[in-house]
Nucleic acid binder design. Sequence first.
DNA 1: TGAAATGTTGGGGCG
DNA 2: ACGCCCCAACATTTC
Length: 487
Amino acid sequence: MSKATIVLFRNDLRLEDNPALCAAIARDAPVIPVFIWSPEEDGPWPPGGASQWWLHHSLKSLCQDLESIGLKLIILRHESSLAAIEKLIERSGADSIFWNRRYEPLLIEVDKKNKIALKDRGLEVKSFPGNLIFEPWTIATAGGTAYKVYTPFWRACREAAEEAVKPPLKRPSQARAFASDLKGLSIEELDLLPDPRIDWAAGMRAFWKPGEAGGKTRLKTFLTKAISEYQTERDRPDHDGVSYLSPHLHFGEISPRLIWQEVQDAVRHTTSDKKKKNAEVFLKEVVWREFAHHILYHFPDTVEQPLRENFRDFPWSPKDRELFKSWKKGKTGYPIIDAGMRQLWTTGWMHNRVRMIVASFLTKDLLISWNDGAEWFWDTLVDADLASNTFGWQWTAGCGADAAPFFRIFNPVLQGKKFDPSGDYVRKWVPELKNAPDKWIHEPWNVSPEELAACGIELGKTYPHPVVDHGQARKKALAIFSEIKQG
DNA sequence: TGAAATGTTGGGGCG
DNA sequence: ACGCCCCAACATTTC
């Protein structure tokens, strides 16, 4: 039996700049690309509903892409990835297995154990850096410790970049397929899609194109247009000012190294200092993602526990089911909050500025634990990523790395007026308010019932009263948070 | 990658 | 012309 190389696909569902795949092809033996669905290995964080929808479509796209270079993706389903791999080795006689690294604490453990077990069987096992620009252990302070503050981390990355950021690997044009037929499952058999009777995915389908080509298109579009105004436009949920790359990055449909490179290329010959500045701001955002992974790698407990220990026993309110539900469903009576939460539910995504606003509202106005917010995001976001999600929530709650100070409490009305000045974002996602004028669309409780009626609004009926008074909630939060600010 | 409270300044109205 | 007061507008401090 001819020797073959297994390539595991996990969160790197792409052909371009895929080190494991390229290395396998370079080995000049048949290549067996494999995807193993083993959500049990994610422990408490198996992919949520929105992520599974994305994964289904991304796998479809990957299958086609692999076919175009002569390969057939083998899809397996097993509680244990090791058991699935061992079976496949028996059937194929493969003598080596390559993969790109993962960085979530539990998955690092899985991959470590698998590596040892497979090496013991005499296989050549190789892991590659593919999903981050900077491996988490390569960036360290002068004292050799992990960074906990973003700016010095950014500087360290920026400095390391000239050396560390290698040109992305080309998309392979041809590969040697494994000769005999290896039976696997169809994508449908993984049963990743939500019940088709409730067409929950309609909004997601309308907005997203999962897969490598979709990611590439997003990047091209962004680089030709929005990047030039990124610094200010990225804060505008009512505009198209962001890259929309987050889900593509999470599933590895696009490589962060490729993004880095293409951004540099896009401004290399420009004479516009402004464009250069804006591109740099975008790279900084890409590196926030790296920072989140850096933190998760060095502080694996942060998935459940706050990084700052003085938050360990923080007196979060016992979760009021009704209140929490009003947040989840976008019925808090605060237009910008409700718009964001409904955008999330409909499209599987929320604008980053609005994520900060709704997260501040949950943790500071409602005093509900960031863990509960993180869980909801995990299930509903197509870009749900353990590192970024954990990091973002701890940041807002004030208990994480380089976190927002306890007194930084977003005012949903002011944020709305500032970043959605004409109310278009609210009108799009909260149609009950579509006839409200710009002037008070972010604070409908501050106008008379007559004025509301003229716009077809009746508070408590067509649109909810605010579930809490922000002014009072803020005072309460300040009192509670100030208790534990020390340390 | 906040917002509110408090402090300061300076122009204009007015006696 | 002058001082006084008022109050935006802006700056600083505080939470």
